[in-house]
């Protein structure tokens, strides 16, 4: 079986915008994850790859080690860890999230 860190590295590298969250965009299972999805939509994200950490305990545990960040949701843009929902909120209010998104969407 592939190492969980490799799987995560693969996920964030293959997709320009990846969100690790609880639930899925249509049915978020946590208010913070719901907010993260909403912010990304407002920032103009067209294609969002999400991973439901509740569906996979190994990912749920592994993602916290991957980023050395203890909470979910976690946003990755172009393989780089951006932050959780508070940082996303700050970035959105400064207009920076929109810039990051439009950069990778070309």
């Amino acid at each position: 079986m592939a190492d969980i860190q490799d799987i995560i590295q693969d996920q964030v590298s293959k997709h320009p915008i990846t969100l690790y969250m609880k639930g899925n965009p249509r049915a978020p299972q946590c208010g913070f994850s719901a907010r993260a999805v909403q912010l990304l939509q407002q920032a103009g994200v067209k294609e969002l790859f999400t991973v439901d950490v509740l569906a996979d305990p190994q990912i749920r545990d592994g993602i916290k080690k991957f980023s050395n960040w203890p909470t979910i949701p976690q946003l990755y843009i172009n393989g780089e860890f951006v932050g959780g929902s508070d940082i996303m909120t700050d970035l959105f209010q400064q207009g920076e999230l929109q810039k990051l998104v439009s950069k990778v969407q070309g």
């Binding site: 050395n68 960040w69 203890p70 860890f81 951006v82 932050g83 959780g84 508070d86 940082i87 700050d90 970035l91």
Partner: peptide
């Protein structure tokens, strides 16, 4: 940066 600030807090409560 916000990221670094949050990491400080998380490290504190770790």
């Amino acid at each position: 940066s916000p990221l670094a600030r949050h990491r400080l807090v998380y490290a504190a409560v770790d």
